[in-house]
Design a binder for these strands. Structure first.
Lengths: 199, 199
DNA sequence: TAGGTAACATACAGTCTGTATGTAGATTGA
DNA sequence: TCAATCTACATACAGACTGTATGTTACCTA
């Protein structure tokens, strides 16, 4: 039998503390930025001390990486959740990009995933995170379309990366006040432009 | 009495010191990163003191902005220099993107302009810098192609931004070891995909 | 040429990061 | 079950950095 307040297992304590730190860091990193957020502020928000932070994470950057990974997973989950797989390859791509743009409107998400993330962790690390979450379904959708013959054949790696880059910039532009319709129209045209000419 | 090495006008001193600081900062910002480079290191490289730095620039970020602006101008100049204007709109776009990819292979340039720049100065500031230098010719090329009827009509602002984003990501991927041919092929396909269907 | 100003150099205060050390509670093996 | 050990922290410390305040020298102007 376990007491209600004391008497917590080490695993529970670790899990709770890590979650608190990640949540507090996410809040501050998105409200301000990685560089402008100090570890004293993070631990105050989380209700622990810096000792706990440096016990669970190698350094501030490792905490940031955990936040980014969690956020990328959340975005991927939202996209997954919003895409009915009964569409044509082309329509599935459009639906996926709409879902991505919608997911990226969560406050601060663009800064976290598109600005600070690449600068702090590097493009290579971000590619790794992206590829293990959201980009995989994009890539699979493109490969499927190419195999079905409805899209011209191109190197999947490169095509995925460049389309993802366009999506990213669209998300940034929309957050900065750009017209959703304009950027959506361009994205659709880019995708449709890759369709095989004779169909 | 006046030595020949002393006796410099204030304007000359300012110009020389600012140039030294920008050059030193550029070297270190590209070798390492903005965050990992300290002002003591910069002024040591430049052969001045921190007093000089803070006399000429409001803060470290302002010095970084000066470096980025200079670098963006250099990239734009290289592109301008390499594009013979006797080509078709489509070929001019291809030539421009080749020139851009070539220019971005200068060491550290991608970190400066594509990673640290957006994170430190913000996307809005980077858009301003890009639009006053390199992106303008891209945008003009696109508008020309649309007017000539060889490219489908789309919002120029959005189209420029998303194509530029694809170019940027291609530059990053190539620097990371990606295949130049692959990324070039995708870029060409994206551009050609925007061609008006009936020609 | 004298007074003012620009271009620095030096000194300082505050803050941050990462580490080293100390301690209470949990875990484990006998 | 109980001592030994280890985990999960809290506290204290050292080094570095940023921006500012102040002092000094060279230039500029009337």
């Amino acid at each position: 039998m376990q007491q209600e307040s004391g008497r917590r297992s080490n695993r529970d304590r670790t899990e709770a503390t890590r979650a608190d730190l990640i949540a507090a860091a996410r809040k501050l990193f998105t409200e301000k930025s990685y560089a402008e957020t100090g570890t004293p502020e993070i631990v105050a928000e989380a209700g622990v001390t810096r000792g706990a932070l440096y016990h669970h994470f190698a350094d501030k950057q490792a905490l940031f990486a955990a936040v980014v990974e969690q956020e990328a997973a959340a975005v991927a989950a939202e996209i997954e959740h919003a895409s009915p797989s009964t569409l044509s390859a082309r329509d599935a791509l459009i639906a996926g990009s709409d879902a991505y743009l919608a997911a990226m409107r969560a406050p601060g998400r663009t800064r976290l995933l598109l600005l600070d993330g690449p600068a702090v962790l590097g493009r290579a690390a971000m590619d790794g995170i992206d590829n293990s979450h959201g980009n995989r379904s994009l890539r699979e959708g493109l490969v499927a379309a190419m195999r079905a013959g409805s899209m011209m054949k191109l190197p999947p790696e490169a095509l995925t990366a460049l389309l993802a880059a366009a999506f990213d910039r669209a998300a940034l532009a929309i957050e900065a006040g750009g017209s959703v319709e304009s950027y959506r129209a361009v994205l659709v045209s880019l995708i449709d432009g890759l369709a095989s000419r004779r169909q």
